[in-house]
Design a protein around this nucleic acid. Structure first.
Length: 308
DNA sequence: AACAGCCTCAACCGCAACGAT
DNA sequence: TATCGTTGCGGTTGAGGCTGT
């Protein structure tokens, strides 16, 4: 039928976002919530398409994002989940609070793939690489080739592999479980065992389960994006029960991680600095102190500002 | 210091899925 | 059921930073 472009591309800005654009988007979403991304750029005064705004928010500006490299535990979880789910990055991300599908996908392509190959494991099938079939010389060449070519390219996806991946992807977790004896990543198995769940029944990992000293109860955040769109305001009952700030902000759906998580990277902090320093934004210090009490003071300088 | 090649990751693109009508 | 509009997902790209020479 011929799809329309997601937005009128004439005169729209592309490429990296500026601090000013970030500021506008954050301000708009905090005051209006997430709704109808197509309308967001217009209403927020941005020369971007809605898609770009959504991506920027979900992958970078969302306050519940964890910053920095994946921990070893998270990495292992990604490997395990990838073995079950294939390249379903959003599904994988939904098990890792504060991580985005894009982030996990990038990390997989740049780090984990290499690691697995070094360990002699095929990152596509999670089975041992066919060492005997490939003469050592070729292997050496492959390794060199891999060093030359960016791992993000499709250099490792020949037709057969693509086919294989698709077949693997189409397997349900139960089907995968049927072949669990093929799973060869021993440390992974150990991890799975020590954490008390089987590969085919990966639980929703709560932040407090990953970070043992957690105090607040939260639910999976990454998977909440779509449900957030249902509301015209962002909702989070976990926080609002005893927190005026978030009521004021109409932030009721955020999954604020606990104080063990580095919530705000420097860049985002600066965005929020920009936001709070803006003329139409005031800082509610009483709310800040309340937030500090609720969540802990480690990040008090970073995030606890109210927009009135 | 200058340059080239490599690496990372934010952002884009196109398609699929889904809901509304 | 068919069509349309919107959002979400996964693959891919390329700018900028990093590293080695």
């Amino acid at each position: 039928m011929g799809r329309q472009p997601c937005c009128d591309k004439v005169g729209l800005k592309k490429g990296p976002w500026t601090a000013e654009e970030d500021k506008k988007l954050i301000h708009f979403i905090l005051t209006n919530g997430q709704c109808c991304w197509r309308a967001v750029p217009k209403l927020a005064g941005l020369l971007r398409c809605g898609k770009s705004c959504r991506l920027r928010w979900t992958n970078y500006l969302r306050p519940d994002l964890k910053r920095g490299l994946l921990s070893e535990f998270e990495e292992k979880m990604v490997i395990d989940l990838h073995a079950q789910l294939g390249n379903r990055w959003s599904k994988i991300a939904s098990h890792l609070p504060g991580r985005t599908d894009n982030e996990i996908k990038n990390h997989w392509n740049t780090h984990i793939k290499k690691k697995l190959r070094k360990m002699g494991i095929d990152p596509l099938t999670h089975k041992p690489l066919p060492i005997t079939e490939t003469p050592p010389q070729e292997q050496e060449q492959e390794q060199k080739q891999e060093q030359i070519q960016p791992v993000t390219s499709s250099n490792d996806t020949n037709l057969a592999e693509i086919q294989e991946t698709k077949e693997t992807d189409q397997k349900s977790p139960l089907e995968v479980d049927d072949h669990q004896e093929d799973y060869t990543f021993d440390t992974m198995d150990q991890m799975v065992m020590t954490n008390g769940f089987c590969i085919d029944e990966v639980p929703l990992i709560e932040p407090q389960e990953i970070f043992s000293s957690s105090t607040t109860s939260t639910s999976s955040s990454s998977s909440s994006t779509s449900s957030m769109c249902q509301d015209s305001t962002i909702s989070n009952s976990n926080i609002t029960n005893n927190n005026n700030l978030f009521e004021e902000l109409q932030i009721t759906d955020f999954e604020w991680p606990n104080n063990d998580i580095d919530l705000w990277g420097d860049e985002l902090s600066s965005c929020w600095d920009l936001l709070m320093n803006d003329g139409d934004v005031a800082v509610d210090h009483s709310s800040i102190s309340q937030c500090q009490r609720n969540i802990g003071s480690d990040h008090q300088d970073s995030w606890a500002y109210g927009i009135l």
